[in-house]
């Protein structure tokens, strides 16, 4: 069965879910670009890994079930795996960032700016 002949009760929710998760993932990556601080940026991609991925996985279930005429739900495996692993990566990154800041390997941006302005004031 071609994609355009999918029954409406499969196609309509799938289309809505796809549009929603596309927008959410895009906003998440926009946040990666727009926010000023690493600690603010670490929150942005979570949008894509929670509802963004969830929407696409649900839509994929709907579309493949509609196309093949039986229940295709093996996307649940990817969903469970993402739910289990995405927070672990974020946690490790958070710990790494705090460790590096404490070890003075990277200077947080506020401190850099104050230093620069202090240097400008002295001469």
């Amino acid at each position: 069965m071609p994609l355009s002949e999918l029954p409406l009760w499969f196609a309509l929710p799938a289309a809505l879910l796809l549009i929603l998760s596309g927008l959410l993932t895009l906003i998440g990556c926009l946040g990666l670009l727009r926010l000023q601080d690493f600690y603010a940026r670490i929150h942005a991609p979570t949008l894509g890994t929670t509802l963004g991925a969830g929407g696409v996985l649900l839509a994929s279930m709907l579309v493949s079930s509609g196309l093949s005429g039986r229940w295709v739900i093996h996307e649940v495996v990817i969903g469970l795996f993402l739910v289990m692993t995405a927070p672990v990566t974020t946690l490790l990154l958070m710990r790494a960032a705090r460790f590096r800041e404490r070890a003075h390997l990277v200077r947080p941006p506020e401190r850099q700016e104050t230093k620069r302005s202090a240097e400008e004031d002295t001469p």
Partner: peptide, 23 residues
Amino acid sequence: QDRILALDTLYINGLLIILTLGM
């Protein structure tokens, strides 16, 4: 850590693109 965060986001996006292409 910013670069690793971006790489993490990249693989999630790649996964979503592959799923959409599969549909």
